[in-house]
Design a protein around this nucleic acid. Structure first.
Lengths: 115, 115
DNA sequence: TTTCTATGCATAGATAGTCTATGGTTCCGG
DNA sequence: CCGGAACCATAGACTATCTATGCATAGAAA
């Protein structure tokens, strides 16, 4: 999908974003989406239908571990923690993101030359 | 798809990259993929199976116009030009890219605080 | 009381972009 | 003569994300 105003995310970055947020400390799923929205200043908005499947995917790959607990509001919530494997994965995804986004910037920075 | 080393592109940026390259001047399809690779310093690599469908898509949407002509090597090639509509679309996609990539950077820049 | 919103989890199905694999033609160099 | 690069193209698979939907509880508002 083209990154137009219809998209809530840059495709392919969701896993990295989740891993990064969880790296800041244990959080439950709903909290992850809130923090992504807040830190990105309301630009990035993870739909619940994207979030939960992603969390299950990351857990299945051994990058996150989950545990039920009580949320700040005293409600049941599933808290996620980053595993060592997840930490390595995050580093890799960040490196890849930097490579690729810088490459995109190179293209966008290419001088305009004609009418 | 996660932006790992298995990906040749940042998903969702292909249309923008193509529009940008064509904005530099008329080019044929094969040349577009070469320029993307060169300008990005061999980081971005557009597969032919991604390129040609994308070009047809962009043409159908009225962002590009195509015309057969002779390549630098004297071979038949389809040259693409950016339309006014395509120029507007490019501007929009660039703005969107900036918004979203900056938002991603905000997340990645969030301070690490614990073990 | 009823109703709406926020918090919290989850799945099914549609959409769509990109990749792999394949196919073909022409031209040039070894 | 053969291989590879220059060119175009399509079919099928994969997979990430979105939309739509479902459920439950708590608190505020009406």
């Amino acid at each position: 999908m083209a990154p137009t105003e219809k998209t809530d995310l840059l495709q392919g970055t969701l896993d990295m974003l989740i891993l990064k947020i969880v790296a800041l400390g244990p959080v439950h799923g709903y909290g992850i989406s809130q923090r992504i929205r807040q830190i990105s200043k309301e630009v990035l908005n993870v739909q619940q239908g994207s979030l939960y499947p992603a969390l299950h995917r990351l857990e299945k790959r051994g990058w996150l571990s989950a545990e039920w607990g009580d949320s700040e509001n005293g409600r049941e919530a599933k808290f996620y923690k980053l595993s060592a494997k997840g930490r390595r994965q995050l580093a890799q995804e960040e490196a890849s993101w930097n490579r690729l986004s810088q490459a995109v910037e190179l293209i966008l920075g290419a001088a305009q030359q004609e009418a």
